[in-house]
Amino acid sequence: MSTVVERGAVRAAPAPRGRRSTALVAVQTLAAREIAVRVLRALGTSEVLAASTVLEARRAAAAHTGDACVVEAGLQDGAGISLVRDLRAAGWSPAVVVSTTEDPWMVRAALAAGVRCFVSTPASGTVAPVLPSTPEGLQNLSGREVEVLQLVADGQSNREVGDALGLSALTVKSHLARIARKLGTGDRAEMVLVCLRAGVIS
Results as ranks from 00 to 15, higher is better:
residue 160 E to L: 04
residue 119 V to Q: 09
residue 34 E to A: 06
residue 134 T to S: 13
residue 77 D to H: 06
residue 173 K to W: 15
residue 106 M to W: 08
residue 21 S to C: 05
residue 159 R to Q: 14
residue 168 S to E: 09
residue 185 T to D: 09
residue 41 R to V: 13
residue 179 I to R: 01
residue 144 R to V: 11
residue 85 R to G: 15
residue 38 R to Q: 14
residue 201 I to Q: 04
residue 27 V to C: 03
residue 7 R to H: 12
residue 185 T to W: 02
residue 186 G to K: 00
residue 187 D to G: 02
residue 9 A to H: 11
residue 112 A to K: 07
residue 58 R to L: 14
residue 195 C to T: 03
residue 47 E to A: 09
residue 129 P to D: 09
residue 138 L to S: 00
residue 49 L to H: 02
residue 34 E to G: 04
residue 155 G to L: 06
residue 112 A to M: 13
residue 18 G to N: 04
residue 44 G to V: 11
residue 2 S to D: 15
residue 36 A to D: 10
residue 146 V to G: 01
residue 161 V to M: 00
residue 89 A to L: 14
residue 13 A to S: 08
residue 1 M to P: 14
residue 135 P to E: 02
residue 134 T to I: 09
residue 153 A to H: 04
residue 4 V to G: 12
residue 169 A to V: 05
residue 143 G to C: 03
residue 113 A to T: 04
residue 173 K to V: 11
residue 143 G to A: 10
residue 36 A to H: 11
residue 70 V to N: 07
residue 57 A to Y: 09
residue 194 V to S: 00
residue 154 D to P: 10
residue 116 R to T: 07
residue 136 E to I: 05
residue 59 R to Y: 09
residue 43 L to G: 06
residue 36 A to I: 04
residue 121 T to W: 06
residue 6 E to N: 12
residue 84 V to R: 13
residue 141 L to R: 02
residue 18 G to S: 06
residue 75 L to E: 15
residue 180 A to E: 12
residue 18 G to H: 05
residue 101 T to I: 09
residue 183 L to M: 07
residue 65 T to L: 03
residue 140 N to E: 13
residue 19 R to D: 10
residue 66 G to T: 10
residue 116 R to N: 07
residue 119 V to R: 15
residue 151 L to T: 01
residue 101 T to E: 15
residue 120 S to E: 08
residue 43 L to T: 10
residue 182 K to S: 08
residue 15 A to S: 14
residue 56 E to K: 07
residue 161 V to Y: 00
residue 53 T to R: 04
residue 36 A to T: 02
residue 82 S to Y: 12
residue 115 V to D: 09
residue 177 A to R: 06
